[in-house]
Amino acid sequence: MSIQHFRVALIPFFAAFCLPVFAHPETLVKVKDAEDQLGARVGYIELDLNSGKILESFRPEERFPMMSTFKVLLCGAVLSRVDAGQEQLGRRIHYSQNDLVEYSPVTEKHLTDGMTVRELCSAAITMSDNTAANLLLTTIGGPKELTAFLHNMGDHVTRLDRWEPELNEAIPNDERDTTMPAAMATTLRKLLTGELLTLASRQQLIDWMEADKVAGPLLRSALPAGWFIADKSGAGERGSRGIIAALGPDGKPSRIVVIYTTGSQATMDERNRQIAEIGASLIKHW
């Protein structure tokens, strides 16, 4: 067993022997301040990774656009098919120029040779490549099948209805392509620590998230040296922004954090800054 596999296998073990965790309302004060600064709703939840206990939450059962955070769930569904012998990570998928959609920095470079399922998941999570996500959605049967996968996990809230990039439209009061912070946090925890996926697939999923290259201005910008984070960000229309993450000190994750916002007129930089400040408060009061 590799060191990384050992780390993920012992996530519940280490967490069980940690000192009790206590909620700190100071972080919620910052979440509410972010709402004021952005002029928009902000949803927040913080779960203990081992027990699933909610440590703090704000608007945990209000719907927010998922945006690209759905790509972690998508690759979880792909990995479940791999575990069941219905898919192979090494299978190569070929596609054409007509398949390319807006923001496809990886797939646009491989029109000639195609990409493997493993490479597509890596591109979808680490670079948020939209064509990679659409190609992977095709392998599982489309958005409705991802929703069905989530329902089978016990998540009857999260739903995907459309493809990239239309799913980022974020129309107010439109339930399409949305989740709730509580539902997303619980589902992410199941994917990373539950028995739904094999140990190898859980490790692969967290490795992809740990290698995320496009979430630097968010929670990662607030992390002290030595902290662990595996995350996936999302951005959408109407001032929408979000991030889902597993993080913790001492090089291992111990909490799940989900943050979503929508309806702001603020710039992307300002949305990023507010999420980073929430992260800084979380870490300060850990």
Rank of each mutant, 00 (worst) to 15 (best):
L192N: 02
Q86P: 05
T178S: 12
L28M: 12
N98C: 07
T261R: 03
I93Q: 05
W163S: 10
N134F: 03
L196T: 15
G239L: 01
A40D: 05
S240P: 02
A200P: 13
A185D: 00
T139K: 08
L218M: 10
M115Q: 07
V78G: 01
V258Y: 01
G52A: 07
A280M: 15
L219Q: 04
S122R: 12
I275L: 10
K284A: 13
A133T: 11
T187V: 08
L49E: 03
V72I: 09
D231H: 04
L79C: 04
R220P: 02
V42D: 00
I275W: 02
T179N: 00
M127P: 01
R81Q: 10
A211I: 06
A77G: 08
I93V: 14
E195H: 14
A148D: 14
V21F: 06
R202Q: 15
G39N: 14
G226I: 03
R91D: 05
F149D: 06
D231S: 05
F14T: 11
R162V: 02
L89T: 06
R189V: 09
Q204M: 15
A40P: 03
W208F: 07
S68F: 00
D212P: 04
A77T: 10
V31P: 01
G216M: 10
E270R: 11
E237I: 10
N168Y: 03
R63M: 07
R59Q: 06
A225H: 14
G251S: 11
D161N: 08
A200Y: 12
D161Q: 06
L218Y: 03
N173L: 15
G234V: 00
F17R: 05
K53M: 13
G239R: 02
P143D: 03
I11K: 05
Q265I: 13
P217Q: 13
S128K: 00
H24P: 06
K252P: 05
P181A: 07
L167P: 04
A23N: 06
S128A: 00
L120V: 05
I11G: 08
F64T: 01
G279F: 05
E56M: 08
E56I: 05
N272L: 02
L282P: 00
S264T: 12
S104I: 02
D231L: 04
L247K: 00
A9P: 14
Y260R: 00
V257Y: 05
V101Y: 08
V101T: 15
H5I: 08
V8D: 11
I45T: 12
T267E: 13
G248K: 02
A211T: 10
A183K: 08
Q204Y: 09
Y95S: 02
G242N: 03
W227L: 01
L188V: 12
R159S: 08
T267M: 11
Q265V: 12
N272F: 02
G216D: 08
P253G: 09
A222Q: 14
A77P: 01
R176M: 10
Q203P: 02
L192H: 04
I283S: 06
G194K: 09
A225Q: 15
Y44V: 07
A225E: 14
I278L: 10
I283Y: 15
L74C: 05
F58E: 05
H110I: 05
T198L: 10
P181T: 05
L199S: 11
A183G: 07
K144R: 14
P105A: 06
V117P: 04
L150I: 13
R63I: 08
G251R: 10
G43C: 04
K232W: 00
R41P: 10
S122G: 12
G226C: 09
S80C: 09
L192C: 08
I54F: 12
K30R: 11
D269T: 12
V21Q: 05
R271L: 12
T186D: 14
A77H: 10
L223E: 02
P181G: 04
D177L: 01
H5K: 14
K144L: 13
D231Q: 05
Q203N: 13
T198V: 07
G248E: 01
V157Q: 14
I206R: 12
G239E: 01
K232H: 00
T138R: 15
F58T: 08
T267D: 14
Y95I: 11
R162P: 01
P60G: 15
L49M: 15
R189S: 13
G85H: 12
H110N: 08
F70S: 07
L49I: 13
S281Y: 15
P249K: 13
G90H: 12
I54E: 11
G142Y: 02
T193W: 10
L197G: 04
P181V: 07
W208M: 08
K71T: 00
R255H: 05
M153D: 04
V82F: 07
G234W: 00
N134L: 02
E166T: 11
P143A: 07
L111E: 07
L223D: 02
H110D: 05
V21N: 06
H151W: 15
A245I: 02
K213C: 12
M153N: 10
E169I: 10
A222P: 10
P165K: 07
L167E: 03
F64D: 00
I125K: 00
V82T: 09
L167R: 02
S104V: 04
R176K: 14
E61D: 14
E195N: 15
E195Q: 13
R118V: 10
A211S: 13
T198W: 04
T147M: 07
I3A: 07
G242L: 00
D48K: 04
E210A: 10
G239D: 02
S57I: 07
K109G: 14
P217S: 10
K190I: 09
Q88M: 11
E169G: 14
E175W: 13
M153G: 08
A124K: 00
Y44T: 02
I45L: 12
R189M: 10
E237K: 13
A266P: 04
F13P: 07
R255V: 06
M1P: 00
I278P: 00
D207C: 10
E87P: 02
I11V: 12
T147R: 11
S57C: 09
M153S: 14
K109I: 11
L38K: 06
V78T: 07
L47G: 03
K109Q: 14
L219R: 03
D36E: 14
G43D: 00
F64K: 01
S281E: 14
N130Q: 04
D113P: 07
P12R: 05
P217E: 10
R91Y: 06
R41T: 09
I54N: 06
V31S: 03
M184C: 06
M180C: 14
S51D: 15
S104N: 05
G85Y: 08
L73H: 07
I3C: 10
P12N: 12
P253L: 10
F14W: 07
Q88R: 12
R273K: 15
K190F: 08
D174G: 05
L19R: 08
L150E: 02
I244H: 01
T262K: 09
K144M: 12
Q37S: 13
R92S: 10
L167C: 11
G248Q: 01
G114L: 04
L135T: 06
R202V: 09
A276G: 10
K284E: 15
G234S: 09
P143W: 02
K109E: 14
L49N: 05
L160H: 06
S96D: 12
L160G: 04
V214K: 08
G114W: 04
A15P: 07
F13M: 15
G248W: 02
P105T: 06
G39S: 13
L192A: 06
A77K: 10
Q204P: 02
L137I: 09
V214W: 05
R91C: 04
V106E: 14
D33Y: 15
L150V: 12
R202H: 08
R118M: 10
L135M: 10
D174Y: 03
L199T: 11
I3R: 08
V106I: 14
T107E: 01
G142N: 06
G234Y: 02
A185N: 01
A77F: 10
M1W: 01
M115H: 03
E237P: 15
A77Q: 14
P20G: 05
R81S: 09
S128Q: 00
M115Y: 03
S51E: 13
E87W: 05
R59M: 04
K53Q: 12
S128I: 00
S254K: 14
D129H: 00
M115F: 04
G52P: 04
I11R: 05
P143Y: 03
S104P: 02
N134A: 04
T179F: 00
A280E: 15
L197K: 06
G251V: 07
L137R: 01
L197D: 03
E166R: 12
I45G: 03
P217V: 09
Q203L: 12
